[in-house]
């Protein structure tokens, strides 16, 4: 019939498959950048609105599946543990470990890292360095996560003096600047 209708239906099916099955499955596959790349090849065909919608919904239903919840919690703890040890001397080794964690649980790992960066400026340089091991899918998710943090309500963007940027925003901006250099 109508090719436009067919495309619309195809898009809905692809989005369904990604949201209900492919993205959650990624969380249960031990770090495998090839799977992430394959998912990206599919996702990159979708407009950013559709991708961001999927990212926003991702992990929302995890509570219904104990295995996903466990994978997420483990990824969060592992990320914090590695971030604590991240320093100039072990950058290469730990940077790869961060990327490995992100391959399986990009949303959890990147959210955790961006959250930490807002509080600890010292982390920016080592994290930016570690991020050179991220895949295209993970970079796309990272952009989403940063926008999500910016859009998050309930915190001031300016300090009490009304002139200077809040520390979290200053850190986030500095992080993004370093990353895009």
């Amino acid at each position: 019939g109508n090719p436009h209708l067919h495309l619309k239906e195809a898009r809905l099916r692809v989005e369904d498959a990604l949201g209900a099955c492919l993205l959650p499955s990624l969380q249960l596959v031990p770090a495998n950048p090839a799977v992430g790349q394959e998912i990206w090849e599919l996702m990159s065909l979708l407009p950013y609105e559709a991708r961001y919608h999927l990212y926003g919904e991702w992990e929302k239903d995890d509570d219904r599946y104990p295995m996903l919840l466990a994978a997420r919690q483990t990824a969060k703890l592992d990320t914090r543990r590695i971030l604590k040890r991240l320093a100039k001397e072990n950058l290469k080794q730990l940077g790869r470990m961060v990327a490995k964690l992100a391959h399986a649980n990009p949303m959890t790992v990147l959210r955790t890292i961006v959250h930490q960066i807002e509080a600890y400026r010292d982390m920016i340089t080592p994290v930016v360095d570690a991020f050179k091991y991220l895949t295209q899918l993970e970079y796309d998710i990272l952009e989403y996560v940063v926008i999500e943090r910016l859009a998050l309500g309930g915190r001031d963007k300016l300090k009490d003096d009304g002139l200077n940027l809040s520390d979290w925003l200053q850190s986030l901006a500095s992080f993004w600047g370093h990353l895009k250099q």
Partner: peptide
């Protein structure tokens, strides 16, 4: 299997895109 599913879906979506263009 995951990779295969992704590839099949990609082909399916691309063919739908082609029909429109």
């Amino acid at each position: 299997l995951l990779q295969k599913v992704c590839r099949v879906l990609r082909g399916y979506y691309l063919s739908a895109l082609e029909l429109v263009s």
